[in-house]
Design a protein around this nucleic acid. Structure first.
Length: 347
DNA sequence: AAAACGTGGCA
DNA sequence: TTGCCAAGTTT
């Protein structure tokens, strides 16, 4: 047997982490864990996995749930399209697959939110089918092991890595092989401070030989961060305040937030008073009070946020119809972005 | 193909 | 502070 594969599999047997979704072959649980762990670290995702398993024990329950309940459970985890697609995929299985979880790569790929990686993960972990799981860990591990300096964020280079994995996986148990490759990337061949001194395949590592470990893998794209100025309004009326549902596309779709006015530069009282009709139709005199500012950092955006307060004695007329009246205890039923939660928790 | 999509941790 | 990264997918 290939000495590299032998070393990795032996190491995995001795060093694997005991993760909740590793002790099952249930495709429903595998799928749930894989979606939760997309672009998300194990420490962050685990509690969400437990929450979802507690609330939904099968596909049907998930399909029949309200999207708002699913988003609420997902609150704080980010990339909320995953939660919306989780719901859609469950309904897809009920409607198009007769309620039976798809058991092959091609059908798995039809599920919303399931791409190459996740389809391969479910196919191999649930059904032991030979599809390599090429995630960030495996990209890094392979790039170093074979000293490959092709940018891993360019789709056209993907086949180079897939082909290597297919060859290595030949004759192995796909479930075991994929788990071992990802675990190596996560535990030994880490982005920073890789543990080359205890790596079971250090003798075969081309990057270690060429002293390029720290330079691999190569990424070609760099993210450009857009700065946005958001002004949120805590509109007090009748012992409560208002939340609006974010519609359309873009960030935080279908989550709730305080009524918002976005400005091109930092919002001032004068600017906001002149634009308040974007939210309210009230003709009566009103005033706005600055409360707090916050900065919220996302991958592609830096949000400069100001929170303002408006007190009303007569019921407001909103321009936006998707508005709900709530209060400081009841609002916790709504899924809100972390930013909004952070502010409301201060009150 | 490139850009958008969240949040938290670490150096 | 800034930049990078995490069990990627969608448009």
């Amino acid at each position: 047997m290939n000495q590299i594969v032998l070393g990795i599999l032996y190491w995995y047997q001795k060093n694997l982490r005991n993760l909740p979704w590793r002790s099952t072959n249930d495709p429903f649980k595998i799928w749930l864990s894989e979606v939760i762990l997309q672009q998300t670290q194990v420490v962050q995702g685990t509690v969400y996995y437990e929450k979802f398993i507690e609330n939904f024990s099968n596909i049907k329950q998930l399909a029949n749930a309200e999207e708002e309940q699913i988003l609420k459970l997902w609150q704080g985890l980010g990339y909320y399209s995953r939660a919306r697609n989780l719901h859609k995929a469950a309904q897809h299985i009920i409607n198009n697959f007769n309620g039976v979880f798809p058991n092959n790569y091609k059908d798995l790929l039809k599920l919303p939110g399931v791409g190459d990686y996740t389809a391969s993960a479910i196919a191999s972990f649930a059904y032991n089918l030979p599809h390599p799981t090429l995630d960030g860990n495996v990209y890094r591990f392979i790039a170093r092991l074979y000293n490959i300096n092709l940018p891993i964020d360019e789709p056209r280079n993907k086949s180079v890595f897939i082909n290597i994995l297919m060859e290595l996986m030949e004759g192995q148990e796909p479930r075991q092989f994929n788990n071992a490759m990802m675990e190596m990337g996560a535990i030994i061949c880490k982005p920073q401070n890789p543990q080359c001194n205890i790596c079971p395949v250090a003798d075969y590592c081309e990057a270690l030989k060429n002293n390029t470990v720290e330079n691999l893998p190569v990424k070609s794209k760099k993210v450009k961060v857009q700065i946005r100025h958001l002004n949120y309004f805590f509109i007090e009326y009748n012992n409560g305040f208002y939340l609006e549902k974010r519609m359309g596309s873009g960030i935080w779709q279908n989550l709730f937030q305080l009524p918002l006015i976005e400005t091109l530069s930092e919002g001032t009282k004068e600017i906001l008073l002149s634009q308040i009709n974007l939210i309210l139709n009230n003709k009566s005199t009103m005033d706005i009070h600055f409360e707090k500012d916050m900065r919220h950092i996302l991958t592609h955006q830096r949000l400069e946020v100001k929170f303002w307060k408006i007190q009303l004695n007569i019921e407001p007329e909103f321009t936006n119809k998707k508005m709900v009246h709530t209060n400081l205890s009841e609002y916790k039923n709504y899924a809100v972005p972390k930013l909004i939660e952070n502010y409301l928790l201060l009150l």
